[in-house]
Simulated assay, not measured.
Amino acid sequence: MHTAVKRFVVALLISLSLGLSSAAFAQTVAPINVNSADEELLAELPGIGPSRAAAIIEERETNGAFTNADDLTRVSGIGPATVDRMRDQVTFEE
């Protein structure tokens, strides 16, 4: 029984370590430039899948570059809550 507890504790510590390192990695990823990113990259943003990514590209090609995160609400289906979730993960260089 003692060996089973040790194994459980080791497995738990490994799981926690992997989880924490994943969270740390996620925080160090470079922001995505909304004005130049392709559909695949845009789809990685929280709340943005392939169809919204395509809509972002269509919007920027039709109506010009985005200047800030709030401009993303020009895209149908992207509201303030979605913008807030991705605000620190996007840039807007032209």
Rank of each mutant, 00 (worst) to 15 (best):
L16V: 10
I56G: 06
N63A: 12
V9S: 09
A43C: 05
T28M: 09
T3A: 08
L13V: 15
L41C: 06
R87G: 10
G77T: 01
S36C: 09
D71H: 03
R87M: 09
A53F: 12
G19M: 11
G47S: 13
V75R: 00
N68C: 10
R7S: 07
F66L: 10
F92Y: 05
Q27V: 11
I56S: 08
S17Q: 03
S51A: 06
A53H: 04
A55F: 15
D70P: 01
V34E: 06
R60G: 00
G19D: 01
E39R: 14
I32W: 10
K6A: 12
D84A: 15
L41A: 14
P80N: 03
V9Q: 05
F8Q: 06
N68H: 06
E58F: 02
T82N: 05
D88Y: 02
I56Q: 01
I57F: 12
S17V: 08
S22V: 07
A24G: 06
P50Q: 10
L18Q: 13
S51P: 00
L42G: 02
T67V: 11
S76H: 14
D88M: 02
D70F: 14
A55D: 09
S36I: 07
I48W: 05
R60Q: 13
T62P: 00
A54C: 01
L20G: 12
F66Y: 07
L45Y: 05
R85E: 13
E44Y: 04
F25Q: 13
G79K: 09
T73M: 14
E93Y: 06
L20H: 08
A81C: 04
V9T: 10
S17A: 15
S51Y: 03
R74L: 07
T91R: 05
T91W: 00
T91E: 13
A11P: 00
D71N: 12
A24T: 12
V10A: 12
E94W: 06
S51G: 05
L72W: 10
N68M: 09
I32V: 15
I57M: 02
L12K: 03
D84C: 04
H2V: 07
L18F: 15
S17R: 04
P46A: 05
D70I: 07
D88K: 15
R74Q: 12
I48G: 00
E39C: 07
E39D: 04
L20P: 02
I48N: 05
L20W: 09
R85Y: 00
L13G: 03
V75D: 03
A37T: 11
T67H: 15
N35V: 08
V9A: 06
L16M: 02
A24D: 04
V10M: 06
L20E: 03
N63K: 04
F92M: 14
N63E: 06
T62K: 10
V83K: 07
E94I: 09
P80W: 08
F66P: 01
G64K: 09
D38K: 13
P31T: 07
A43G: 08
I56K: 05
P46G: 01
M86S: 12
F25P: 02
I14S: 01
L16D: 00
R60N: 06
A23E: 03
A4I: 15
K6N: 11
I14G: 08
E58Y: 09
F8G: 04
R85I: 04
R85A: 15
V29L: 14
Q89V: 03
G77K: 00
E61A: 12
L16T: 10
V75L: 14
H2K: 15
V34T: 04
I14D: 05
P50Y: 07
R52C: 09
V9C: 04
E40F: 11
